[in-house]
Amino acid sequence: MSSHNQDTTVAQTTQEARMGEGVDDRFNSKLREAFGSSPFILTKFDNFMNWVRGSSMFMLQFGIACCSIEMMHTYAVKHDLDRFGAGVPRASPRQADVIIVPGTIVSKFAPRMKRVYDQMPEPKFVVSMGSCTCSGGPFQEGYNVLKGAEEVIPCDIHIPGCPPRPEALVYGIAKLQERIANGESSPVTVKPYELEQFGDLEQDELVQHLADQIDEEDLVMRYNWAESQ
C-alpha cells in the first residue's frame, strides 16, 4: 500500500484548517494521519485487492489432531486470532480462504483432505501447523503416516512445534497476511498429483515418468516423489 507520504505537520495544519481550532487530535485516526486531508487514495487495483485479501481471511474449521486443540485456543479468548483480521472459522470449505492443517495426516485421511482443499475457492492458502504437517513429526516413522502435508497439498507457511504455541500460530498467520498483502499471492505450484491437470506442461521425460504413475482413479498417497526421479 503506497499512499501520500505527507509530512504529518502539513496534515496537522490541513486538519486544523478543516476542523477548526480547539479540536485536538484525540479523535484522529491513524489512517487519516497517513492519508492526510485527501479523501482519495491512488493505488493499483491489484495492490488494493491484495491488501483487502490479507486483511480479511476466513479460516476453515478443520481439526485433525492435537494441534487443533491449540488452534481452538488461538481462535478463542485470550489469543483471539480474529483481532488480526483472520478468525471466524467457517464450517464449509466453500466459504473459506485459508486452511490450517493442524495435525498428523495418515493414509486414510489424505484423500479426504485433498478433497476438502479442492473444494475451497481460489485464491486459497494453506498454513501447515505443527511438526506433523511439516514432516510427519514424532510419527514420521509410522507405517501409516504421511511425511508432511506437502505430499498432498501445497503449503504456504510452515509453523513448526509440537504443538506450536498459539502465539506462534498467530505469528505465522500474520506473516501469511503480510505476504498476501505484499502481493505474494499463493504460488501456483505444480504438485505431482496435478500433473495431468497441467497437461500443457512440456512433456519431458520427468513429467512423462511421473504422469505414467498416476491413474485417473487412484492416488498414491505414500509415494516418495522426491526419490522417484
Binding site: 486414510k108 478433497r115 516418495n224
Partner: peptide, 15 residues
C-alpha cells in the same frame, strides 16, 4: 516380517 516402509496405494475413489 512387516515392511513398515512399503508404499501403499490408497485410492482416490474412496472419496
Amino acid at each position: 516380517d512387516a515392511d513398515q516402509e512399503q508404499p501403499q496405494v490408497v485410492p482416490l475413489r474412496e472419496h
